[in-house]
Design a protein around this nucleic acid. Sequence first.
RNA 1: GCGGGCGUGAUGGAAUGGUAGACAUACGGGACUUAAAAUCCCGAGGGGGUAGCCCCGUGCGGGUUCGAGUCCCGCCGCCCGCACCA
Length: 872
Amino acid sequence: MKSIERYNPRVEEPRWQQAWDDAGAFVIANDDPREPYYVLEMFPYPSGRIHMGHVRNYAMGDVLARYKRARGFNVLHPMGWDAFGLPAENAAKKTGTHPKQWTYANIATMKAQLKTMGLSFDWTREFATCDVAYYAQQQKLFLDMLKAGLVTRKKSKVNWDPVDETVLANEQVIDGRGWRSGALVEQRELTQWFFRISEFSEELLAALDGLDGWPDKVRLMQRNWIGKSEGLRLLFALTPSDMTLTPAIEVFTTRPDTIFGASFIALSPDHPLAAELSAANPALRAFIAEVHRQGTATEALEKAEKQGIFTGLTVAHPVREGETLPVYVANFVLMEYGAGAIFGCPAHDQRDLDFARKYGLPVRPVVLPEGADPAAFAVADEAYTGPGRIFNSAFLDGLAVDAAKRAIAAHFAARTVDGRPQGVVETNYRLRDWGISRQRYWGCPIPIIHCEEHGAVPVPDADLPVTLPDDVTFERPGNPLDHHPHWKHVACPLCGRPARRETDTMDTFVDSSWYFARFTAPDAATPTIPAIADRWLPVDQYIGGIEHAILHLLYSRFFARAMRRTGHLGLDEPFKGMFTQGMVVHETYRDAAGDWVLPADVVLEGAGAERRARHAATGAPVAIGAIEKMSKSKKNVVDPDEIVRTYGADTARWFMLSDSPPERDVQWTAAGIEGAGRFQQRVWKLVNEAVEVAALPPTGTTPAADIAALQKLVHRAVAAVGDNIEALRFNSAVAHIYELSNGLARFAATLAAAPTANGGATLREGVEKLVLVIAPMMPHLAESCWAVLGGTGLVTDTPWPAVDPALLVDADVVLAVQVNGKRRGEISVPKGADAARVEKEALSLEVVTRMLDGKAPRKVIIVPDRIVNVVA
RNA sequence: GCGGGCGUGAUGGAAUGGUAGACAUACGGGACUUAAAAUCCCGAGGGGGUAGCCCCGUGCGGGUUCGAGUCCCGCCGCCCGCACCA
């Protein structure tokens, strides 16, 4: 047999990419009659270069897209760029390159990199969110949402960096200082634009139950984030009354059943009443200022001691006649949640207990754990928050917690304070409105004009889009749009008098909250064409990182609802299936000086405990460190370009999909990628050999049983690979492909020694199917093999191989025979054999008779076609 | 603190409550080679036995079951999310 040349991906891969391009293989039409299927991977931020995390993400999506296409679907598989964001402005500050230039150059680089991976994207639908055509539509959406009452403008507290003159996200505040400037961060009240996501709190929560194509973990994270809690809004009358202040203080509680144990009231330092009182109370003023100063250091909050200051006010105890409760301002009460004030029941809330112990307030247990002695039950350092019966509580005594909540709610509903019901049942959510104003240049301008007379006026349709000016400078701190000589000076659309353009831009999360819809009609003159969007949406399978489990996915779910209200979409849930992939991790290496070393500069020797590393160039020893997420800072990165150049895209894709389950982290290793490369060569060799062996003059006939065995192997593998791809279990699909190719190779070797006509035909058929099932994962190799096999057209246009169900079942089955639950032997019986026969055969096994030692079995359990268990 | 997940050979990992370790990597042995690489074949959870076989084994301790890696309870360890949410 002639020797087979090695498969050369460097030649073959570009060739097939060109062939797909020429055939327009992945350009799809909205009106294609085939059933639509939408596969989407989270689009990348154009940071500069593709990394291995992208490779893994897109490899997974591509397998599914190609598989579904082979299954006859019209598959939408688009790609674009999440292109607005701060890094572009930082680059501008550092290198002087304009954000636009920097961003589009990065896109060009990364697109070229993606092209070498042979991904089945419909590139005709590509867009970047910084394209004017895209953000123009986003401005229309914003104005429609404003009209629909889904946008508001309100004051809110923000982290303000006084040096950079910008708002910082919580993550950008480190130890109370700006991450970039190092300046002490201030809390400022700014008027900002908000999307009213909280309007949908209940809906967003309730709909999670229906998202059964999502990981439970993500649904749970969203549930917690929305944070629903049901309780009572309760009024406490000031006593003695002071009408110059307020008649009553309002609190929110989820534990009204513990009201008899209440021993104080605490206001948030941001509570209006606290501000009012502080005017005449320097100590209180100082306390509030101190809390604000500490407030920004989020990290310190968890350890911060419960602190408070007595305001001098007291309120009447609502159920203990004649008693009063002191009113404090306390550092642990948040203004943003509930009523910004609480009542403290120290016996049954840990924070209240800590506070009460510090300020010597009474601790009165009112919930008795099941079985506890009411006379002896006491609370020391640990509050009791569990279930039980109410005691020490007059008319609530003896009730369970839930019953007591209802009873006390009814009690307060029937009473009034200041002419209002004293208690009102209320549901609260942790979810707050989404503040989208950013004092930055490289984002979507908010299409509003501020007029002294008319307030915030929407930019008229005719004046849209509001485009970003190119001539901006980044030398001065603050927002370049604000510094621009004339951009913001415009006339009021209503009165024509001088007015000021809104210079804030939108949070970049807005851009990514509806891009999936835009892909369905990327050139439309409206944000979407609803009929087309509704045909494609929801996205059948969305794939991306777990880091977006909350914000991005929640914002997108909100946007779908907002777009439905404004007539741009006909559905609520944007993503039917969601999959969160694991990270790509790699060992870290450090030299003697403690500097990180790139894996490419490291030579590894030995195995196990003997494993050593040294520097490739110098030979100096290098310490092998922890396995961590690939990151530039630790240099434990492998460049996809390098891998594609050395091994080819298919090998990189194959390695990313094999071994690790897709939801878990995958460890990149040199051995792993080499193994994947070897498999690529093995398939190539097998296909070429099969063609030669099948063409050899026959010397006999292969027994029917051997033919059937191979066919079974092939059909089972095809079925298993399909099932596994559908379930996104790519690692299991890979294992079945290995089994298939190993089986085919063994068969080919046997046939080479004694060629037959029937064997040759069966082998060829098997190899053809192998090629078709590896195609979603190694598409270039599959095309090359297909050509060798003389297949018609491109694999890309070839349907998934059919499976003969008859070949998936056996005539005979091997049953494991257990004695007392331990496997002792096996019997082969016809499939579906009756219990009597199975029992007879099992009991006649030598090992079974020996174990039974002449006694009759106590019981024989037979699971048809699976197992026999003899209980001795 | 609250919530969730995970723990299986040297390693990554398979396994609808039904033959634990599929498949791969690394390793050992062999074939081919002057040699190496590549390739192919064989071996392999631990222990015992010439062998047929036997004992032990999925973090630890219990339980349910004819049967548990899988279900339940309690620990230990690691990872992730949220975090003063009343």
